[in-house]
Simulated assay, not measured.
Amino acid sequence: MEKSKVYFTNMHATGKENLLQKLHRLIKTAGIDQINFDKKYTAIKIHFGEPGNLAFLRPNYAKVTADIVKELGGKPFLTDCNTLYVGNRKDALEHLNSAYLNGFSPFSTGCHVIIGDGLKGTDDILIPVEGGEYVKEAKIGRAIMDADVFISLSHFKGHEAAGFGGALKNIGMGCGSRAGKMEMHSSGKPSVSAEDCIGCGMCAKNCAHGAITFTDRKASINHNICVGCGRCIGVCAVDAVQPASDESNDILNKKIAEYSLAVLNGRPNFHISLVIDVSPYCDCHAENDIAIVPDVGMFASFDPVALDIACADAVNRQPAIEGSLLEKNGCKHHDHFTDVSPETNWRVLIDHAVKLGLGSKEYELVTI
Score class of each variant (00 low, 15 high):
130 E>M: 14
244 A>D: 06
235 V>F: 04
26 L>M: 07
32 I>P: 07
106 P>A: 07
141 G>L: 03
367 T>Q: 14
64 V>Q: 08
264 L>K: 04
24 H>I: 04
8 F>H: 04
86 V>N: 11
193 S>C: 09
320 A>R: 00
85 Y>S: 01
143 A>I: 10
123 D>Q: 15
157 K>H: 11
120 K>L: 12
28 K>F: 10
355 K>E: 09
329 N>W: 04
165 G>T: 02
230 G>W: 01
50 E>I: 00
70 K>W: 14
325 L>G: 02
49 G>N: 00
266 G>H: 06
15 G>Y: 08
280 P>D: 06
177 S>R: 11
188 G>N: 08
213 T>A: 12
155 H>Q: 03
239 D>G: 03
36 N>M: 09
92 A>P: 09
39 K>Q: 14
263 V>K: 04
264 L>G: 08
80 D>V: 01
135 V>D: 02
314 A>E: 00
107 F>I: 15
140 I>G: 10
78 L>A: 06
43 A>R: 00
346 W>N: 02
25 R>H: 15
93 L>A: 14
221 I>K: 09
7 Y>T: 08
284 C>T: 01
98 S>E: 00
163 G>E: 01
290 I>P: 15
149 V>F: 08
364 E>I: 14
305 V>L: 02
21 Q>T: 11
344 T>S: 07
270 F>C: 05
42 T>Y: 10
19 L>G: 11
336 H>V: 06
229 C>G: 05
73 G>E: 12
109 T>Q: 13
116 G>A: 11
224 N>I: 11
348 V>A: 01
308 D>W: 01
174 G>Y: 00
170 N>I: 00
145 M>V: 10
132 G>W: 01
318 Q>I: 00
118 G>V: 10
159 H>Q: 02
359 G>W: 03
126 L>V: 14
175 C>F: 02
84 L>R: 01
234 G>Y: 04
169 K>Y: 05
264 L>Y: 08
275 V>I: 13
188 G>R: 03
289 D>P: 15
321 I>W: 03
140 I>A: 08
355 K>G: 07
344 T>D: 03
108 S>L: 14
156 F>A: 09
211 A>H: 11
254 K>E: 05
166 G>D: 05
53 N>Q: 02
13 A>S: 13
367 T>Y: 13
